[in-house]
Amino acid sequence: MSIQHFRVALIPFFAAFCLPVFAHPETLVKVKDAEDQLGARVGYIELDLNSGKILESFRPEERFPMMSTFKVLLCGAVLSRVDAGQEQLGRRIHYSQNDLVEYSPVTEKHLTDGMTVRELCSAAITMSDNTAANLLLTTIGGPKELTAFLHNMGDHVTRLDRWEPELNEAIPNDERDTTMPAAMATTLRKLLTGELLTLASRQQLIDWMEADKVAGPLLRSALPAGWFIADKSGAGERGSRGIIAALGPDGKPSRIVVIYTTGSQATMDERNRQIAEIGASLIKHW
């Protein structure tokens, strides 16, 4: 067993022997301040990774656009098919120029040779490549099948209805392509620590998230040296922004954090800054 596999296998073990965790309302004060600064709703939840206990939450059962955070769930569904012998990570998928959609920095470079399922998941999570996500959605049967996968996990809230990039439209009061912070946090925890996926697939999923290259201005910008984070960000229309993450000190994750916002007129930089400040408060009061 590799060191990384050992780390993920012992996530519940280490967490069980940690000192009790206590909620700190100071972080919620910052979440509410972010709402004021952005002029928009902000949803927040913080779960203990081992027990699933909610440590703090704000608007945990209000719907927010998922945006690209759905790509972690998508690759979880792909990995479940791999575990069941219905898919192979090494299978190569070929596609054409007509398949390319807006923001496809990886797939646009491989029109000639195609990409493997493993490479597509890596591109979808680490670079948020939209064509990679659409190609992977095709392998599982489309958005409705991802929703069905989530329902089978016990998540009857999260739903995907459309493809990239239309799913980022974020129309107010439109339930399409949305989740709730509580539902997303619980589902992410199941994917990373539950028995739904094999140990190898859980490790692969967290490795992809740990290698995320496009979430630097968010929670990662607030992390002290030595902290662990595996995350996936999302951005959408109407001032929408979000991030889902597993993080913790001492090089291992111990909490799940989900943050979503929508309806702001603020710039992307300002949305990023507010999420980073929430992260800084979380870490300060850990």
Rank of each mutant, 00 (worst) to 15 (best):
I3A: 07
F6R: 09
R7I: 09
A9F: 12
F14C: 09
A16S: 15
F17H: 09
C18S: 11
H24V: 15
P25V: 11
L28K: 09
L28Q: 08
K30V: 11
V31C: 13
V42R: 00
G43A: 08
Y44S: 01
L47H: 03
L47G: 03
N50D: 15
N50R: 12
K53C: 08
I54K: 07
L55Y: 12
E56L: 08
P60M: 13
E62S: 08
M66R: 00
M66K: 00
M66P: 01
M67C: 14
F70E: 02
V78Q: 03
L79C: 04
R81C: 05
R81E: 07
V82F: 07
A84K: 11
A84E: 12
Q86A: 14
G90Y: 12
R92Q: 10
Y95I: 11
Y95H: 05
N98D: 11
D99V: 09
D99Y: 07
T107F: 02
E108I: 12
E108W: 08
E108R: 11
H110G: 08
L111P: 07
T112R: 15
V117D: 00
L120H: 03
A123E: 04
T126Q: 09
T126D: 07
T126G: 12
M127N: 08
D129T: 00
A132E: 00
T138L: 10
I140W: 03
I140G: 04
G142P: 02
G142S: 06
K144T: 13
L146T: 04
F149V: 09
M153V: 11
M153I: 13
H156D: 14
H156M: 08
V157A: 12
L160R: 01
D161N: 08
W163L: 11
E164N: 00
E175K: 12
R176M: 10
T178H: 02
P181G: 04
P181A: 07
P181E: 00
P181Q: 00
R189F: 12
L191R: 00
E195D: 13
L199E: 15
A200C: 13
A200F: 09
Q203I: 11
W208C: 03
W208N: 03
E210V: 14
A211E: 14
L218M: 10
L219P: 04
P224R: 06
G226H: 11
F228M: 10
S233C: 02
S233L: 02
G234T: 00
A235N: 05
G236S: 07
R238N: 15
A245N: 01
L247Q: 02
G248S: 03
V258D: 01
I259K: 00
I259V: 13
Y260H: 01
T261I: 12
T261S: 10
G263T: 05
M268A: 09
M268P: 07
A276T: 10
L282G: 03
I283E: 03
